[in-house]
Design a protein around this nucleic acid. Structure first.
Length: 295
DNA sequence: AGAATTACCTGGCAGC
DNA sequence: TGCTGCCAGGTAATTC
């Protein structure tokens, strides 16, 4: 699921239930995901109020009243879902504002937040992750900006801060391909394989082209920066992309996958020129593009 | 130092 | 129907 638009969609889905909620208990169903869970995690968070849900790049940030933050990354297959707390089922007025998605595979429900929600009564927020590439890290008050996972992240492609000139200065003298440069989280933070392919197609630029070359051409740099911002903004509005049946926290599906111009469309006609969309491998990962109308 | 490759996991799907 | 091999949106560690 999770590039920036998917993580932002998760954040918006969890926000009404989590913000202002008190952590009654945190249950860890295994000792680790990609990394070991922080020591004494339940003891550190129990009884605390969640002040806000934030996001940086593909990281979800859960901020607590004592200033600590939980840094949550969804890896390749992580998802959150919300359920009524079954221990209080008799008190629960269920179903009035949500439908609760069933777990597709309860064996991969690794973390359960038992919450006393500000507006929704008792709730469980459950983290499920079959491949376990995701992780949870705890960060003390004031340490967020310097945290190893966050400190080297580049500019957010949301809003209007990623201008053509900013992109040009980031890509200047880079000999790597545009594909690799756009995936580099130290330059622009939050893009993944899907949205890089889509943004390059929209700008009419070949993923094989050197990043530094585009940096020297203000019009191309402007076009690429605009395409990146547009693709990300449109994907957020669409609720992200739902691949392999991934769902949002409230169980609904994003629908940006229906707008893909090239991603996962190998052999199908280009929506701009009708030529056949190609798949190549760059740095070990699939790239989809139209060789006929991208230069 | 920067770039490319490999490692980490499970599930789904195509082909046999 | 079951097996095998391959592929998948991520970052981090290792190698070159």
């Amino acid at each position: 699921m999770p590039e920036l638009p998917e993580v932002e969609t998760v954040r918006r889905g969890l926000q009404p239930v989590m913000e202002g909620a008190t952590v009654e208990k945190l249950v860890l169903n295994r000792p680790d995901l990609r990394f070991p869970f922080p020591k004494d995690l339940n003891e550190r968070l129990q009884g605390q109020k969640i002040i806000s849900l934030g996001r940086r790049a593909k990281y979800l940030l859960i901020e607590f009243e004592d200033g600590a933050s939980l840094i949550s990354h969804l890896g390749m297959s992580g998802s959150y879902r919300i359920e009524p707390d079954l221990r209080f089922a008799s008190k629960e007025r269920t179903g009035e504002d949500f439908h609760f998605p069933r777990s597709k595979n309860p064996a991969h429900d690794h973390v359960v937040f038992h919450l006393q929600s500000a507006n929704h009564g008792q709730r469980q927020v459950i983290y499920n992750d079959p491949r376990r590439f995701g992780f949870l890290l705890l960060c003390g008050a004031g340490e967020l900006a310097d945290h190893p996972s966050l400190k080297d992240l580049g500019i957010e492609p949301t809003g209007n801060s990623l201008s053509g000139s900013v992109l040009a200065s980031l890509f200047r003298d880079k000999r790597v391909s545009l594909k690799a440069a756009l995936l580099d989280q130290r330059l622009i933070a939050g893009l993944g394989n899907i949205y890089v392919c889509e943004a390059l197609w929209r700008a009419g630029l070949s993923p094989l082209r050197a990043a530094g070359e585009v940096a020297e051409n203000p019009q191309l740099a402007e076009s690429l920066a605009t395409s990146v911002r547009e693709v990300i903004a449109e994907a957020i509005v669409a609720g992200g992309s739902s691949l392999r049946d991934h769902r949002q926290a409230d169980g609904t599906l994003g629908y940006f996958q229906h707008s893909f111009a090239v991603y996962d469309r190998e052999g199908e006609p280009c929506r701009r020129c009708g030529a056949i969309v190609q798949r190549i491998v760059q740095n070990g990962r699939s790239t989809f593009f139209c060789a006929a109308c991208s230069a």
